[in-house]
């Protein structure tokens, strides 16, 4: 234990920069995933048939082992000279985020009380006003739950992305294993978990701030 703490103390600078790298990868991935997944989830509520298909595709993607997904992307992205590194890792994380984000958004919007939707329509709101003034505010807690799930998931998968050279805390685990340095492996694992906990806590705080007072 003291051994481990000494290691952390000694290598603090390195660990910190790997943590930042990890955070950067996951952060950018989540922002892109929200920009794609939330509008898509909302749109799908107007098209049930397409919704089934898209949600199935997203479910299939999430079942692909991450190592395999990275493997698939190497030849494809090699064509633009990006076979390994940041880009494939980013794409993988965005893809993995889609299921929790789309499904939660879709379910959240669909579960808005039909009476409220009916009232909004009968009062003379346009489709866009209904969405922004009524449906999204009332669906926010569930949409945010999806974002939180995706974030935690991505922080975990982000560690594996180190295999294809995307950097981040996975590098510690990776090189720890190959060098037989258990302190390194442990440091990587502990900081991945800490990062997940802190990220979830911050998102929970954001969720509390943006959720309308009336539905808390």
């Amino acid at each position: 234990m003291t051994d481990f703490l000494n290691y952390v103390q000694r290598e603090w600078g390195t660990i910190f920069s790997y943590t930042l790298e990890h955070l950067q990868l996951v952060g950018i991935a989540i922002v892109i995933a929200i920009l794609i997944g939330v509008p898509l989830g909302i749109y799908l509520t107007t098209n049930k048939y397409l919704a089934e298909t898209i949600l199935q595709v997203a479910s299939i993607i999430i079942t692909i082992p991450s190592i395999a997904l990275f493997g698939i992307m190497i030849p494809v992205l090699s064509m633009i000279g990006q076979g390994i590194g940041f880009l494939p890792a980013l794409i993988a994380l965005v893809l993995y985020s889609q299921l929790p984000i789309i499904r939660n958004t879709y379910t959240a919007i669909q579960n808005v009380d039909p009476n409220i939707r009916d009232a909004a329509k009968g009062i003379g709101m346009t489709t866009f006003q209904r969405l922004t003034k009524v449906e999204i505010p009332n669906a926010l807690p569930l949409i945010m739950a999806g974002v939180r799930t995706a974030t935690v998931l991505n922080i975990g998968i982000g560690a594996i992305a180190a295999f294809i050279g995307s950097g981040g805390l996975g590098v510690l685990i990776n090189s720890g294993i190959s060098r037989g340095n258990s302190n390194m492996v442990l440091a990587g694992a502990v900081f991945v978990s800490l990062l997940a906990l802190v990220a979830d806590f911050i998102l929970k705080f954001i969720q509390a701030r943006i959720t309308p007072k009336g539905i808390k």
Binding site: D113, N115, I116, D118, A119, G122, N138, G214
Partner: peptide
């Protein structure tokens, strides 16, 4: 409407 249809997110 019957179930008043007030918007829960608004004052």
């Amino acid at each position: 409407i019957q179930s008043n249809g007030l918007f829960p997110n608004m004052t």
